[in-house]
């Protein structure tokens, strides 16, 4: 059974939905823990939806490449896009709210990903954003 998964999607939210369904099937077939499947999909949704919504100035179709590798102890996903240079690790994210009045509605996704994923790494290479995320395979 292949331990790696490669997909190219366009910058459409419906494509992201299909990707998440395919990644779920791929990871479940390889008996990856449900918590790791959830965390990887959470990161794919957050990071790729950010690219789709904020990454491009034009209305052209763009390709976003996604690969997932299942290792002995961890699952690694790599997302590559040709959108604006954007390092999500430099985003502060919202601090835990102290009151409803003062809490901001957005900005929690990055904070959640940083807390729940074991490793997140960003690099810019050949005009592309390359984001690597990693979760433990078993909990």
């Amino acid at each position: 059974m292949q331990a790696s998964f490669h997909r190219s999607i366009t910058n459409e939210l419906h494509d992201l939905e299909k990707l998440m369904n395919a990644s779920t099937n791929f990871l479940e077939d390889r008996e990856v823990d449900a918590q790791a499947v959830y965390r990887i999909n959470l990161a794919l949704e957050e990071m790729i939806s950010n690219v789709i919504r904020h990454g491009y100035d034009d209305y052209e179709s763009h390709e976003i490449q996604v690969s997932i590798e299942v290792g002995e102890n961890e699952v690694t996903a790599i997302i590559e896009d040709d959108g604006h240079e954007f390092n999500p690790l430099k985003q502060e994210g919202e601090a835990n709210p102290v009151s409803l009045e003062k809490s901001k509605i957005g900005g929690r996704g990055i904070q959640v990903i940083k807390k729940l994923l074991d490793h997140v790494d960003y690099r810019r290479e050949n005009g592309k954003n390359i984001l690597t995320i990693q979760a433990r395979r078993q909990f």
Binding site: A34, L42, E94, A95, N96, P97, R108, Q111, V112
Partner: peptide, 29 residues
Amino acid sequence: NLEKKKLILLNPQPLVNEVLEASGIGDVV
């Protein structure tokens, strides 16, 4: 909250609860 009313989240599954906890939303909801 502006109307002095509340939103209460009931019985999330564990993996959903993990996201709620990581977001800090449980501090105010």
